[in-house]
């Protein structure tokens, strides 16, 4: 089986080829960051047009990199949602049309299932079952992953996602919105121990839900009252990052203790945060469990994770009919089915 994976849910065009025998054969990514930079955010119409321009050449590049031809592809997986509808439609149309032309099965994948399974692309991959912490700008959730398509939501954010709290606090610190979370982490590195301390929300009561809205408000009030010099801003950034990381670690520890899972997988954009990685590594050593992260390039959007999720589902005999499907909204609770 050689599966072509296509990801076009937002502002990255991702294409990859995954082989049953040889693993990941090719992975190509085009990022639109420069295209959207003058607008301070992603402009959906520009994103769709750029996907149209880049997708076919990227598929050719991936085939070349894998030393395959189109006729070697045996199945196609694409991100069917959630995301920007115009952008999703580009991937869906290309995937379905190519599948029809080549007479091979295609399957629509939930973007977050891709992120959840990304660590399985690594040489040191977790086996089922495992606990997954999904942590990004749109989601913060703990899931029990029993097998492909068998996910149980154990807890999630009742208000803001962790990545959203990072981005909004970065904005309050004057760091801008796009990539604000990563900028905050860089600023935090310059900070030292200080008098600033933020709450660890919802850690004092049972359960695995998260809440980051109050933390954002607390940061807003602290920033407004504090001096504006670089040192103080860095100290605040550090205290804030510590509060978010601590909260995530406390909930992971609780989830591991209550489920007796031996493996923890961390996925989504915030899983690239170095401080989070180090803290979870430390926790895993204390608890005698293993922790798995995708390589940094697979923490953000990419085609490889979609190719892999598609490979697992197509191998299980699943595929969709010829309808071109894309869903802008697709709740986490409906993650178990393919499109």
């Amino acid at each position: 089986m050689n599966i072509l994976g296509i990801e076009t849910s937002c502002d990255e065009t991702g294409v990859a080829l995954y082989s049953e025998k040889h693993g990941l054969l090719a992975h190509q990514l085009h990022t639109q960051v420069a295209l959207h930079a003058p607008y301070g955010g992603v402009v959906p119409e520009l994103a769709s047009r750029d996907h149209i321009r880049k997708l076919l050449p990227l598929i050719e590049d991936a085939l070349q990199q894998a030393k395959l031809t189109r006729n070697d592809i045996t199945g196609i997986a694409y991100t069917a949602g959630p995301g920007l509808i115009g952008a999703l439609m580009v991937g869906a149309c290309v995937a379905r049309s190519l599948g029809f032309a080549l007479n091979i099965p295609t399957i629509g994948i939930h973007h977050l299932e891709g992120h959840l399974l990304a660590p399985l692309l690594e040489e040191r991959a977790p086996t089922f079952p495992f606990l997954a912490l999904l942590v990004s700008g749109g989601h913060t959730a703990l899931l029990s992953v029993e097998n492909i398509g068998h996910y149980t939501l154990l807890g999630e954010s009742v208000d803001d996602a962790a990545g959203e709290a990072f981005d909004k606090t970065a904005r309050l610190l004057g760091l801008g919105y796009q990539g604000g979370g990563a900028a905050l982490a860089r600023l935090a590195k310059q900070g030292g121990p200080s008098q600033f301390h933020f709450p660890r929300p919802m850690t004092d009561r049972p359960g695995l839900d998260f809440s980051f809205s109050g933390l954002k408000t607390s940061a807003m009030m602290t920033i407004a009252a504090a001096p504006k010099d670089e040192k103080t801003r860095a100290d605040i950034a550090r205290a804030f990052e510590e509060a978010v990381v601590d909260t995530l670690v406390i909930k992971c520890r609780r989830a591991i203790e209550s489920t007796s899972m031996k493996r923890l997988v961390v996925a989504g954009g915030v899983s690239a945060n170095i401080h989070l990685r180090m803290s979870l590594e430390k926790m895993s050593q204390e608890l005698g469990i293993e922790v798995f992260f995708p390589r940094p390039e697979f923490c953000t959007d990419n085609g490889a994770m979609i190719a892999y999720a598609g490979y697992r589902r197509l191998k299980a005999g699943e595929h969709d009919d010829l309808t071109i499907c894309a869903r802008a909204r697709w709740p986490l609770g409906e993650l178990n089915g393919a499109y």
Binding site: S157, A161, R329
Partner: peptide, 9 residues
């Protein structure tokens, strides 16, 4: 039920 921030969606 939960009332989440709609910032992302």
């Amino acid at each position: 039920g939960p009332v989440k921030s709609p910032t992302y969606a």
